[in-house]
Design a protein around this nucleic acid. Sequence first.
DNA 1: TTCATTAATGAACAATGTGTTCGATAAAAA
DNA 2: TTTTTATCGAACACATTGTTCATTAATGAA
Lengths: 272, 272
Amino acid sequence: MNNVFDKKYLYLIVVSTTNVLSIVHYRIKPMFLSGRKRKFMTKKKEDRRISRTRRLMHEALMTLIVEKGYETITVQDILDRADVGRSTFYAHYRDKDELLLSSFELLRTLFEQQQQALFDSRRTGKEPEVNFVLELFRHTGQHHKLYKAIAGKQSGEMILKYLHRYLYTMLIEPLTELNRNKKSPPVPIEVTTHHLISTLLSLMTWWLDNKMPYSAERMDEIFRILTAPAIEAAFSRKMEKKEYESIAGEHPTGGVNAFYSLFIDSVCCPDK
Amino acid sequence: MNNVFDKKYLYLIVVSTTNVLSIVHYRIKPMFLSGRKRKFMTKKKEDRRISRTRRLMHEALMTLIVEKGYETITVQDILDRADVGRSTFYAHYRDKDELLLSSFELLRTLFEQQQQALFDSRRTGKEPEVNFVLELFRHTGQHHKLYKAIAGKQSGEMILKYLHRYLYTMLIEPLTELNRNKKSPPVPIEVTTHHLISTLLSLMTWWLDNKMPYSAERMDEIFRILTAPAIEAAFSRKMEKKEYESIAGEHPTGGVNAFYSLFIDSVCCPDK
DNA sequence: TTCATTAATGAACAATGTGTTCGATAAAAA
DNA sequence: TTTTTATCGAACACATTGTTCATTAATGAA
């Protein structure tokens, strides 16, 4: 704590041979900070001002996304809405994208915690039945304004990519695991995984961009019809409907709707 | 022709009560031009300078896309490469995007002509067998540099959307037609069409982004395995392989590789 | 409460990019 | 040749980004 190299500010004392000329309070540029601290300081509580500022900017971004779409938002918009100084913004995030990703990182952490809790609870209680695709469509329908803003036509490529990557890393491992003891599938597992996620996201954006002409239940059904063969391909055999459902509802995908729940309900939904 | 309202320039004669003070050669702003002309002037040959300038800018854009990706290109880059004045650029296109789309519009016209020729030739000769998906993958593989630049990870969302829209309008009509006399399919035909195209494009980008680990033939096979059920769904019944192929190779999709041929070979390929 | 440390402020600044304007010049078409 | 049109190019206004730094205020630890 008293290590000089952990300080973020220092005093420069300017002297001549006879006098102290001045004392300057100087902020050390972040690039010169060691940075090792972060690992050991997870438990140290954050400065109130920091969390307050970050929360304000986060909220501002979310409401602005709904209002005018991510792409057209300028940093200045965020500053005005959050009522935060320009230099403050850049003290926290390199740019607009980093702010957005930071929000998602936050949510990911929350989601993983929730998922862990769910996973733990299964060991004692009975298995919860969750059809995550259906729940995802339902939730999207209920909060289509925000979803459309972040995943619709004119915005959100970045978020879609992020989601894609995220779902991929979540799915690839268990799917590979399930496939381990079987003969090599007709379609490589990575391709199947990629395809499943692409299909889900493309159905979702189609739905949003076309004013949601079908119910969430119907969309879920459509998803099943269109992807059943991909899943067959992944597992080298036909699957009974029940079996498919058990996979779709299983860990770790089962909690993805929880991810969206967190995103929508507790963090940023302005039309509620 | 002698209609004053067709002129693009006019002379302003500035006078006082006693003198002619000056004569100004004034260019009428495009927004005030009637614009009706275009329809009737398709046959009128274009000013050499116009086609030359457009060609230069078009070529500049294409080589730059390969070099550094669409997103990072500035208008100035294009001007430098094409050796064209700034105001000239804006006299032709509103912005960078419009230039890009204009290239595609141009290609679409060429493609449609070629398609028409192909269609006509069928009436007399025998049916050509074309598997457009396979040809597409092959061509992509051969010219992956350009394809990756325009459709890969870090760029080309816009082009993918354009391609999507384009393929959609090409496919939706014949697919609907094929479905007319059958009972209503389990999946709406618009959704199926959208899904087929999404799958093709997402497989394509995956392939490009992952250094093309499989052969074009394999990718074509994968595409079939993954989408066979979607096509089943569209036609409410199982399809024999032969039947599927005949649809995939049929008008109007059969010529899509020609579209890519034109794009790659005759217009813009710098690494050839 | 005190005080060392740290965060926020805000105005100024450089840098980059966009799209427009207009007089002058050159090229094309009639 | 004459009329019409396209190009040039430099200047301009404007928007946006990201940085800098002296000043002020908040925070938390002792």
